[in-house]
């Protein structure tokens, strides 16, 4: 008798688990919306594309809810989904359609001259934006999102050495941009 009913019970349990994990993912999506959008923006350099990427990520994550391992980092899983959609679908299509990569001379962020307190933030964003995509993404993941080298390597699907050399290349470029008087670089003034 038990053998007869067990499959039904298992099916019911799996359905309950799936619902629970979808709820978890939905909550996680809401919690990480801004960071997902920022990652999409760093990859695509276009606000609307970033927004579409977040939506596509939400759809894909909910479809694949049963692949998420409860207890692991949900934000990292969502980042990996967003990245895969960007690489395999959006970016690939843009290149096919001749829209290619981001124009490196394009100034994406105002220097913020109107906002004295944050001139340097605008300069940093622009400088990072001008880096090659692979370096820009690695800088965001390690220095902004706080991933360790090995976590970044896993997400990027590269050896750790590649993560390190991308960061080194980015730092060498950015180090040259630092104004000589950067010790006194404008920051929020201390009160």
């Amino acid at each position: 008798m038990r053998a007869l009913f067990a499959p039904h019970r298992n099916k019911a349990r799996r359905a309950v688990e799936r619902m629970a994990s979808r709820d978890e993912i939905r909550a996680g999506l809401s919690q990480h919306l801004a960071r997902l959008w920022r990652y999409g923006l760093a990859l695509s350099a276009a606000r609307d594309v970033a927004e579409d990427l977040v939506q596509a990520t939400a759809l894909r994550a909910l479809e694949r809810a049963d692949q998420f391992q409860s207890g692991t980092r949900l934000d990292r899983w969502l980042f990996a989904i967003l990245r895969s959609i960007w690489l395999n679908e959006v970016r690939a299509r843009r290149i096919r359609e001749g829209q290619g990569f981001v124009d490196p001379d394009q100034v994406l962020f105002s220097d913020g001259r109107e906002v004295e307190t944050n001139i340097f933030a605008g300069q940093v964003l622009n400088a990072v934006h001008r880096l090659p995509e692979a370096q820009r993404e690695t800088v965001l993941l390690v220095y902004v999102e706080g991933l360790s080298y090995s976590e970044a390597a896993e997400l990027l699907g590269t050896p750790i050495g590649t993560v390190m050399s991308r960061l080194a290349a980015a730092r060498l470029t950015l180090g040259k941009l630092r104004p000589p008087d950067s010790v006194a670089a404008p920051r929020e003034s201390a009160k």
Binding site: R38, A121, A127, K176
Partner: peptide, 16 residues
Amino acid sequence: LLAAGGLPFSRAFDSV
């Protein structure tokens, strides 16, 4: 030289 390339990334990107 490499240390000088360490800009305030986190702070800048928080404004995004």
